[in-house]
Nucleic acid binder design. Structure first.
Lengths: 120, 120
DNA sequence: TTTGGATATCGACGTCCGTCAATAGGAGAG
DNA sequence: CTCTCCTATTGACGGACGTCGATATCCAAA
């Protein structure tokens, strides 16, 4: 897997193509297919009630470990892991492994990009 | 269908529950399940490359009729009709029937709501 | 009224997604 | 090393979604 070692080994440094979302606001000019696909992928990651609540919980706490998400979201551990993975691949979350725990943070710049493309 | 007659008969005046999206920004406080579901529905409507390009085309022209969408989106007429319906039910588009044609416009307030909830 | 064109609905098909049980991988404690 | 706990992956199942052909509905022009 050609793991590139980092400070504490961020688990989604590899295999994650967080595309730049650099298109103009969609209210300004028609999106081409490539930009539309990239934007749709990020929106799809957020278009799930469990993932939205997950993001809001992480944002509210600043940093949250996976084990603290099972109870408030009422989902099994594999399902939580699935959702954090989807959000990380969309660039909305970043995770850092510390000891046995994985700590998740939101990426505010990603949400800023979204707000910009949504037509300001 | 108990059609309520309007000025020129807006086709999605009926059966469309455009919920208010009145929750606080998701970066401020955890979303409850109801708000998360409402937000997820709107995001899901936008989380499709064809619908994103559709919205951007309508926004760029200010007003567009369905028949002008088949060619640029390269989709069949039923598919276009399906997508406009989904976007209208999400409150992103409004349609007005004039003669034989349906003219679509974006609802800028809806995008503003989205930007607000996405954390500003 | 009849005809033609624009839009909406229906039914079907293939694919993708959310979910969980079972299992594997990893890291600290003893 | 072994044990235990936390996280990730796999495989499977049911439901939702995008798409199109066929059909229905609606409106205006002739």
């Amino acid at each position: 897997m050609t793991a590139r070692p980092t400070a504490h080994g961020s688990p989604q440094d590899e295999h994650v193509v967080v595309c730049a979302l650099g298109s103009a606001p969609l209210t300004d000019a028609p999106l081409d297919e490539e930009d539309a696909l990239a934007l749709a992928r990020v929106l799809a990651a957020l278009a799930d009630p469990v993932r939205l609540r997950l993001v809001s919980i992480v944002a509210a706490h600043g940093e949250v470990c996976s084990c603290d998400l099972e109870i408030p979201l009422a989902r099994s551990q594999p399902t939580i892991s699935h959702h954090t993975r989807v959000l990380a691949e969309a660039g909305v979350l970043v995770g850092e492994k510390r000891g046995r725990w994985t700590w998740w943070q939101v990426v505010p710049e990603r949400l800023t990009e979204l707000r910009r493309i949504l037509g300001g």
